[in-house]
């Protein structure tokens, strides 16, 4: 199968590769780059576990092809903490006990980061709606909503 050359910025690093046209972005990140923090929960775009940031917007990496990402800047969960410091959303998830098995957590966190970059002071309802494309089977969501509220508060007071 003919391979497609792509150049992608992943977590700040420029990556050039040749990929099969049918390879998903999720498989590219996981299998080619070893960034296994991006999780595959359904591979049909419902569960949101594979969410990554694409030029800052939340995108389901199981529904796009790696070839489409040519020229894009991708942030995965591995790229969120800086110099060993957890991102405020990660820190808030920890403190609010917003995770149990942890499988949905990368996608949840990145979805929350995208939300807070657009709306620094979202209402509880807005948070719930923004997260409603991400499934969690462990927590019942209440602590996730609280974590996003906590992170929003801290990000507002630090900016």
């Amino acid at each position: 199968m003919e391979r497609v050359p792509i150049t992608v910025t992943v977590n700040g690093q420029t990556v050039s590769a040749e990929v099969e046209p049918r390879m998903t972005l999720a498989d590219f990140l996981r299998d080619e780059l070893g960034l296994t923090g991006t999780k595959l929960g359904c591979e049909h775009g419902v569960c949101g576990s594979c969410t990554v940031l694409w030029d800052g917007a939340a995108v389901r990496s199981c529904l796009v092809l790696a070839a489409q990402a040519d020229g894009a800047a991708i942030t995965t969960i591995e790229g969120l903490a800086t110099e060993g410091q957890l991102h405020p959303v990660q820190q808030a998830f920890w403190e609010a006990h917003a995770l149990q098995c942890g499988f949905c957590t990368p996608g949840m966190i990145l979805t929350a980061v995208a939300l807070l970059s657009e709306d620094a002071n979202p209402s509880e309802q807005a948070i719930r709606e923004a997260l409603s494309g991400n499934l969690c089977r462990c927590t019942g969501y209440q602590n996730i909503v609280r974590a996003v509220q906590l992170a929003a508060e801290r990000l507002r007071s630090s900016s």
Partner: peptide, 21 residues
């Protein structure tokens, strides 16, 4: 007590079955 196992889940370092290469 805050969970001691959480940092590896929060940063994507946790290895589930599919992640083992």
């Amino acid at each position: 007590v805050k969970r001691v196992e959480d940092p590896r889940f929060l940063t994507g370092e946790a290895r589930y079955l599919a992640d083992i290469q």
